[in-house]
Write a protein that binds this DNA or RNA. Sequence first.
DNA 1: TGACAAAATGTACGCGTGTACATTTTTTTT
DNA 2: AAAAAAAATGTACACGCGTACATTTTGTCA
Lengths: 348, 348
Amino acid sequence: MRQQVAKLAGVSEATVSRVLNGVGPVKEATKQRVLAAAAELGYVPNALAQQFARKKSGNLGVVLPHMAKVSLFSTYYFSEMLSGIGSEVQASGNDLLLLFREADQPRNYVSLFQSQKIDALIVLGAREIPQDRSALEELAQDGYPFCVLNQRYGPRGGESPFLTVDADHWSGSQEAVRHLIDIGCSKIAFINGPEQYSNSIDRREGYLSVLAQSGLPIEQRLMLTGNYSRKSGYELANDLAVLIQSGRADSVFAANDRMAIGAMQGLREHGLEAGRDYAICGYDDADAARMASPQLTSVAVPFQEMGRKAASLLLGGDNAGVDALRSAVLPVQLVARESTGVRQRRSK
Amino acid sequence: MRQQVAKLAGVSEATVSRVLNGVGPVKEATKQRVLAAAAELGYVPNALAQQFARKKSGNLGVVLPHMAKVSLFSTYYFSEMLSGIGSEVQASGNDLLLLFREADQPRNYVSLFQSQKIDALIVLGAREIPQDRSALEELAQDGYPFCVLNQRYGPRGGESPFLTVDADHWSGSQEAVRHLIDIGCSKIAFINGPEQYSNSIDRREGYLSVLAQSGLPIEQRLMLTGNYSRKSGYELANDLAVLIQSGRADSVFAANDRMAIGAMQGLREHGLEAGRDYAICGYDDADAARMASPQLTSVAVPFQEMGRKAASLLLGGDNAGVDALRSAVLPVQLVARESTGVRQRRSK
DNA sequence: TGACAAAATGTACGCGTGTACATTTTTTTT
DNA sequence: AAAAAAAATGTACACGCGTACATTTTGTCA
């Protein structure tokens, strides 16, 4: 096939290759002849052979936890990051290989590189558990290019053992809690997610630091733990209702929107209405925040940007703001809405 | 590398290949020696070379519309289908290549096959527009294996020009409308999405057929069109409010949950409450349906199953219920909730 | 035990590129 | 105008695997 193109253009196959890849010096006239011949014959290079010859698959792998039926995570979260990764991958002329990780199954990331199926890897949904950490350490050991998204393994603000792109959940939580304080709350309950996720830890620390700064007491009974699902928030509402009705809590900061919405639903069944009987702030600013009623105050996380950043770090040589500590931390932003008493203007 | 394995096992490279691929007759003892040698040396076959030699990439391509910032679609929809596809792909030992399609960009699906990047293709988010249809016709012309998901190109219930996996949105809409009638509604407004999507057409026809069956009048002013976004539902609430307040409508059937929720929000601003002043039924049974308040009655679509089915049609030879008409149509199911006056039992 | 069939293994090569190196053509320099 | 340098093109081969075919070993039957 390539041979036919070469013949039609009156050149050698090597020249065809050079023209199509834009490498090496080629006379303009020759180039045009080759391109014309290729177009005429409808020649499309065999990507498999190219990859083989180049020893590059051109694939960026993305592993994400396989959520069987009920997803612990907001699908929003992953969709957005994937979308960001996708746009960057496309712009770089690469492809995106989607890899699902079964919960139990051992993580064999290294063989993905050994088999050359992928040139680089982005890991989503990683946690601070031995299996995850050791799998990543193995990758780092062998020097493969990979990036962990939305999870931190080193100390916050310190040097990271792996390349990481995260959001500033510490500051985001501070903003959230300060906002609650600003609107007059002083007894802020906190629904966190499992601390296997570094951003749960970051949120807790953000929460605690603002309480300390503001001279508010830290009370264990105000700190609850769910699993980031709506249902867990719903169930914790029973505890929250007691706290609120007894005057021991006047507001809630939830570590994500789903738990916040679940809590609102549960509290409603206790006759407690967000924005009236208590204030509540979620996290992520997922679509659901705007769909809830009252609309949920939340902390917007730039998931798309995070995905884009991770991909560009691996694909291009975009090392802006990363070098030393091996981690990029993107800013988040509070979005105030009805659930903390901020009425929205219409048509939004 | 493979050579070293062969040497260590005391066999030829061909035998190593045979053992690792499980082809051809191999003496048990030899097999064990080879496996041991491969394990000892940590040999991982080069996937690129394998693909090249086999002339198969082992990749199932999945194209999905690239939704820049605001997604017209519920991300839920795509996440679920992707998840279903993913589980099937994994089970079959293949990989999933994710391909984003820019809105304007011409669809060049054929070259994906010509370059052998993919062995089969699943198309998500296709519409009845010339670009989409012709791109698919080109694929069909050349005999490439592909499957269109959640979109129909032939007549409903008739022969399909392409392999298709869809859900029975006609019956689903009938169920929804019948449910509204069952609870006492007789003036049912309908918010549909763009008719470029066949399932919008199916829903309209389902809606109309039940009205006809029930001897209810068909009124154009009750039939509105949004674009499947929450915002469009929100904006249409102004029209709905007039209809409801004037007594010309007593309920709403929305073609998806997002529009339904938007409408509920908009109507609330007009003092109208779902489940009290009017009934409303959504479609998709996305997470959001359960997060809305009141919780939204909706039609559950088996997106995961659909994805799984499409993948298994292309990967395995699973032709169950498809052969003649080239299309599989999966059943949907109504889930009644508070928005049509059905109170939910607690702890769900 | 010999002849023959079947099983097991080895040998050799193609798959379609990219590219190092050799060669030819063109341009520049003296 | 000859020599040298630079640009353009051609030749040849490796990449790592799967597999058709040739060969050897093992098993079977008379």
